[in-house]
Computed example of a mutant assay.
Amino acid sequence: MADLADQLGLLARELQKEQDTEAVLEDIVRAAIRLIPQVAHASISLVRARRTVESRAASGDLPRRVDAVQSETGQGPCLDAAYEEQLVRVSDLSSETRWPRFARRAWDLGARSMLSFQLFVEGDSLGALNLYGAEVGAFDEESEQVGQLVAAHAAVAFADAQEISQLNQALVNRDVIGQAKGILMERFKISAPQAFVLLSAVSSTTNTKLQVVAEQLASTGDIRLNGNGRGHAQAAAGG
């Protein structure tokens, strides 16, 4: 237990250093395989609208293919019990009755037993840590207990990484809009507020997101959207 505590402490420090969401997910999957007894494969699964299951940072082809089967059949741990429970154990996929179509296909792919830990639920979206055993009945109480500790660290790190990612994207968006405003201010000799109003007007009249309008102007020096031949910014400015 002392060694496990040290390993979990190391994992927490490693995850804190990462500022990229994908790198965080890969670290979590590697840690799950290293720390949780009897784990042969692991992945993070993201579920959208309780229907589409997406494998992220999968340790191999098996987790990706099993997630694809969940999406195709509309059955499986991530699409059912994992929304209501923090832990789902599947001891034997050959005799699993909760999701018969999924279980039969997953068994044929080579999955024998599974553990799924809920990481987060936001409306109809779900994040789960999925573990795969190489044999029937591979996971026991120790696997569940250690898995819950790893999943708790993973949930916190994943939330932090998403927040950092969103913050970085917001900063990028702000910089691009600032560049576009600067181009318009220099070209048409207008103020910063007037440049923003101009960008907003182009966005509205072309039914294009403001960020896309700003990116095109910043990268090409012009705005030609929706097939119009004349630059909308020039037209809006009266040029």
Rank of each mutant, 00 (worst) to 15 (best):
G238R: 08
A57M: 05
N207E: 15
Q118G: 13
H41Y: 11
N130M: 09
I223W: 00
E215H: 08
R56K: 12
F117S: 10
S91K: 14
G227D: 04
V90E: 10
A214V: 05
R174Y: 03
R174C: 07
F188W: 10
G133L: 08
G238L: 09
V121S: 07
A68M: 07
S43V: 12
A195Q: 04
G60A: 12
M185T: 06
E141L: 13
P193Y: 08
I177W: 01
L11P: 01
F158E: 09
V202D: 10
F188Q: 06
V212E: 13
S165I: 01
R101L: 15
A2R: 07
L79N: 04
A236D: 00
A214E: 08
E54D: 08
A57H: 05
D108Q: 15
S204A: 15
V150W: 02
G137Q: 07
Q216C: 02
V213R: 13
G123D: 06
A111L: 05
L93H: 12
A49N: 15
R224L: 14
V150L: 07
L119H: 04
T21H: 02
N207V: 09
Q162E: 13
R50A: 10
L87Y: 11
Y83L: 05
L25P: 00
E18V: 03
L62M: 10
I36C: 06
S191C: 05
R174D: 11
L115Y: 06
G74L: 13
S43Y: 09
L149R: 01
E72V: 12
